[in-house]
Each structure stands twice: as C-alpha cells, then as structure tokens.
Simulated scan of single mutants.
Amino acid sequence: MKLRKTWMLGALLVAPMTVSYNSMANFDGLSNELAPLSCLLEPSRDIELSSEVQGVIREIRVNRGDSVKKGQVVMRLNSTLEVAAVNTVKARLEFAKRKVERNADLYRKNLISDNEQDEMLTEQRLAEFQLKEARVKLSQRETKSPISGVVIERIKDPGEFVDELPFLRIATLNPMHAEVVLPAELYGTVKKDEAVTLYPLNSQTPYEGKVKIIDPIIDAASNTFAVTVSLNNDSGALSAGVRCQVEFKG
C-alpha cells in the first residue's frame, strides 16, 4: 500500500495578501503585534490509498463522505486462489503433524532412524512456514485505512482492476490545519506551540489553535516562510477549503 501526502499551499490558493505589522524589524527583535493574516483551512492529512498487490476489486466498503477508522478494511480483492492456497497448506501441515505423532512411539523404541525422524520434523516445519506465507498473501488482498478520517474521493469501483494507482482518497479533518505565509522579517519570532486565534470567514466563532510546523527554509523568491497551525475540530464545524484569518498572540 502506497501513501502519497498531498500538500496545498495557501500562497497559491488564497488571493494575494498584504501582510501588515505595527513596527518594522530592528536588530534587537520585532515588536510584532500582527494584523490578521490570511490563511486557508486544510486537512491535517490527505492520503491516497493503493493496493499492495494487483487484482480485481471484489468490494469497496466505503463511499464518498463516509467516516473511516484507522485499521478499518476499506477494500477487498478477489482472493479465490489465495484462500485455496491457505486451505491446501493447512491440510499439508495437519498431515505432517499426524505423521510425526504416529511415529513418535516408533522413534522412542528405535524402530525408525534419526534421519527419518528429522525428515518428518522438517516437513512439518516447512508446512508451518508455507502456511504463514499463504496467509500473508491472503492478507494482501485487502487494504486497511492507515488513518482515521473521511473519504473524499472513491476512484475505483468493484469489478475494476487495481494496481499501484490509487483507488481511494481519505482526509483527516480532526485536527484541522491552517497554512499561513509570513514575511521573512518575522522568522524566529514565531515559536512552535505558540497560541493563535483563527477566524473562519464563513463563521463568527473564533477558534484557538497552536503553531505546529514552522518551515525551516525561507523561500528566496517571495522572501516568505510558511507556518502550519493545528486546530481541534471535535465538533466537525470546521471545513477544509475555507479561507480564514489568524492572529498571533505572541
């Protein structure tokens, strides 16, 4: 299963913004009560799922808009051959075990050689290894969600062939992230875990968040750097793609 993280840059999706602050930088630091800055709400994780192996989809157990839990089975491939292989190896293992048990008394009485006993035990161990392998191959015929979130796109349907290309897209909406672009002059003044207040443009309710990520590199072309703010979204009131404003309290 291959995961691909999707990044949406607020600088590309939000109209050009003017960043203002009450006093410019000096060498001793910034007096940085910032005016509200433009931002964009994004999922904290946005991944595309693909199958670990190729095959024809037997069932996809979720639809667009459905909530999923981490570890939940979301897709199964046709697995007739894999199930048959597991059953075959199980029968071989059971036979090998019965053979060892039947000959245990003969071995204790020295009626069979050490070599014959070793061959029977080896057959049993090989069958155990083959059963583990068959079960792994069978488990690869289903895909589990690596995160809790919401299905935002179902790319494939039952009956279609799936390979390394994605068949499902899942986003985590709790916590929610907001991407903020700041001028390079403010680099070093914003701290990780610093408290911020965020105002979605479609709501009058303010939300409290914390700085989660500060880009370690300043973009030379725009002379800016990005900050990611994390917000609790237990209520589900925040929606990805909504523009917002954020105030740093620092």
Rank of each mutant, 00 (worst) to 15 (best):
M24E: 12
N32S: 12
S31N: 13
P206K: 01
E160S: 15
M24C: 09
G71C: 02
A25G: 12
F129V: 12
E123K: 11
A11G: 05
V150N: 12
S20Q: 11
N232S: 15
E94H: 02
A84P: 07
T88A: 12
T205S: 02
V53H: 05
D163Y: 08
V62K: 07
G236S: 02
N32G: 14
V246N: 01
S31A: 14
A35H: 14
M17F: 07
S145N: 10
P158K: 06
L198I: 13
R141E: 09
D219S: 10
S235Q: 06
S222F: 07
W7I: 13
P216S: 02
S51E: 12
A178M: 04
S148M: 05
K5L: 14
R102W: 10
E123F: 04
A237C: 00
I152T: 15
D66S: 12
P206M: 03
S222N: 11
L12R: 12
A35L: 08
S44Q: 08
V196Q: 04
R169L: 03
T197L: 08
D157Y: 10
R154W: 02
F129C: 06
T197D: 07
E133R: 00
E116N: 08
N115I: 11
R58C: 13
P43Y: 12
M17K: 14
T224F: 05
Q124D: 06
K249D: 06
P216C: 04
A226I: 07
Q72F: 09
T6G: 02
N63A: 15
R45M: 15
L9C: 06
E142Y: 11
N223G: 02
I170A: 05
S139M: 07
L30W: 08
V180S: 04
V136G: 00
A85G: 03
L121G: 10
S203P: 06
E94R: 01
F248N: 03
I213Y: 15
K69L: 13
Y21C: 02
L12E: 15
R61E: 11
D118P: 00
S23C: 09
A134R: 00
K2L: 14
D28L: 02
K90W: 07
L3Y: 11
V196E: 05
T189R: 09
M75R: 01
S239M: 00
M75D: 05
C244D: 05
Y187H: 14
F161H: 11
L13D: 12
I213F: 14
I147Q: 08
V73L: 02
K210R: 14
S31T: 15
N202T: 11
P166F: 00
L126S: 10
N232K: 13
R108G: 10
